[in-house]
Each structure stands twice: as C-alpha cells, then as structure tokens.
C-alpha cells in the first residue's frame, strides 16, 4: 500500500452553539486503507463524516479529501464526483428494483461502474429485478453499498453500515468490505462495534465525546492499551479464586468465573498446574487475548453496549 494521504484532517472542530460535537480532531487516512472511526453514539463520528463528504460546514480547523478542501465550493464539487457515501439509516426508492435504483444514482455522475458488474460484485445477481421494499435488511445494505460504489469512487465512506443487522448479515457486509479493500479502494468506516473495527481495519481511531483518544493499527493499540491476556476459569467459583489468588493476586471473581491476568510466558502453565494440583473444579479454561474492547475499557473505564456507553 502506498502512503499517499487521501484524507487529511487537522484540528477539526464542529460546534452547535456552545456544544462541541467534534472538538479538535486530527488524523490522516492513506490510500488503500480500511480506516475505522470507532466510538459510542454521539461521539462525533457521523458529524465528522458529514463534514468530509461536504454535507456539513466545519466550525474551525481544516479537512482535505483527495487534496481538495471541503470548505471550498469548487473543492466540494470535485470531492462529490470522486467519493461514494453510504449515510446512516439510508433507504432508497421502495418501488424501484435493485437494478433501477443503481441506474438512477449512476445518472448523477459522468461514467462510473458497469451496473451488471456492480450487481455481481455485491452478489445481488439473483435479486437484480427485485423491488427494494422486498429485500431483507442485509440485502438492502448490500444494495446501499453498491449505490455508494456506482461512480467507481476512490474513497468510500460507510457510516455505521452494520448497525441494525443480524449477525449473518453483518458478516456478509464484512466480507463485502474486505473484498473492496482488495480493489485498492480507500474505505472510511464508522462504527460503534469494536470487534468490527478490529476485524476490518488497517487503522483505527477511537473517538469519544468529540475527541480522539487513540490512533493506530489494531495491534498497536492492543499492545499499548489492551492490557494482558487473561485466563478465564469458567465456573471456578470462590474455590478456584482463593487458590489462584495466592500466586496471582490480581485475579478477579466475576459472575462465578475467575479471571487471571497473565503477565509472562510462564504464567499460563503455572496457573494450570496450580489448578490441577489442587484438583480444583471448573467448567472450562479459556485464554482470552485483549481486544479493542479492552483498549476502550482501559482508556475510558467504560464499555460500549449497543452503541451507548455503560
């Protein structure tokens, strides 16, 4: 992947009266990356995207997409030709078919992708003549992504593309996004799902209350802020807890499971031997690596559940 910056944001601020939805945000997105903006609802993700796709004015700072300034009229015209956008909660014409919907949006541009090829790309071939209202939620999203690709854009913005989808549909969309990345398209994703950001992204920015609290690749962030690998002794109970606490004072008891943070290579075998040696009862042993959820928890002390902080 070349290191050409396709999106450059510097000290971006968006205020509504005294309330700052975006409060001094700076980052860069490179060509061909899958870049995620993760955070709870109201963190400022959608606002940032809307500023980048020229739907909203910024209050201060500056932002450039593909070298064009988002605050400049001519720049906006150029940006609109070259980006694809899937807004949040997007629905298109109920009474048009998949193919008709795509043709409609394609007309807004000069050139663009071949419609049939696009339908094949998102795997909607056998639904090409189906009316939008008759598609399932997951297929509607696939069409929406296809619509965002209709002008063969260099950069695609997907605003919460899997919110509201069932698990299978979510994986479907993930596959689609991974497929797009192979085509050297730059993808800017917003989401409140940490696992999604971790699985899909080359780089992640975590945003909360309008400010960036972390910026890096998933592995970097996990290394820096993820904390330790944990041994989970399922249903070990107070018995296992008491035994393990002696060697591993940081062990916690949570809902009947014992969580043991592992510091070094030898910790795991030691813990297991301790349990065996005392013939401790438990349901199962699980080794859990830290994830972006842990990163968020360590940085903010909170979790994101269904998009909300808790």
């Amino acid at each position: 992947m070349s290191k050409e910056a396709v999106i450059q944001v510097d000290s971006l601020v968006k205020k509504y009266g005294d309330l700052a939805a975006v409060n001094g945000v700076s980052f860069t997105v490179n060509r061909g990356e899958v870049f995620s903006f993760v955070g709870p609802n109201g963190a400022g993700k959608t606002t940032t995207v809307e500023i980048l796709v020229c739907l909203r004015d910024l209050t201060s700072g500056n932002a450039k997409v593909l070298g064009f300034d988002v605050s400049d009229r001519k720049g906006q015209q150029q940006i609109r030709k070259r980006v694809g956008v899937l807004p949040q909660d997007f629905n298109t014409f109920d009474l048009l078919t998949v193919k008709e919907n795509l043709s409609y949006y394609k007309k807004m541009y000069d050139g663009g992708m071949d419609i049939d090829e696009l339908i094949r790309l998102v795997d909607l071939e056998d639904k090409a003549k189906t009316l939008y209202k008759n598609l399932s939620g997951g297929l509607k999203k696939r069409l929406a992504i296809a619509i965002a690709l209709v002008n063969d854009p260099e950069v695609i913005f997907l605003d919460e593309p899997t919110t509201g989808l069932d698990p299978k549909a979510r994986r479907d969309v993930w596959d689609l996004i991974e497929g797009l990345q192979e085509q050297e398209k730059t993808i800017f994703l917003t989401t409140h799902y940490m696992d999604e950001a971790e699985v899909l992204s080359d780089r992640v920015v975590i945003i909360s209350y309008g400010k960036i609290i972390a910026d890096g690749t998933p592995s970097e962030l996990i290394l820096q802020h993820g904390g330790k690998t944990t041994l989970i002794v399922e249903e070990g109970g107070t018995e296992a807890h008491d035994i393990l606490r002696k060697k591993f004072p940081d062990s916690k008891l949570e809902n009947g499971d014992v969580l043991v943070p592992l510091n070094g290579k030898s910790d795991l075998p030691e813990a297991v031997m301790t349990l065996n040696g005392n013939k401790t009862k438990f349901a199962e042993l699980i080794v859990r690596r830290p994830s972006l959820e842990d990163v968020f928890l360590n940085l903010t002390g909170k979790k994101i559940v269904d998009g909300e902080l808790s």
Partner: peptide, 13 residues
C-alpha cells in the same frame, strides 16, 4: 425522510 435527499446531496447533482 428516506435519506435519499441526503444521499443525493453527496452526488454532483
């Protein structure tokens, strides 16, 4: 309401 206008606003239309 459908979000179509918002989407169209991101196109050159």
């Amino acid at each position: 309401e459908l979000g179509i206008l918002k989407k169209l606003a991101t196109t050159p239309l």
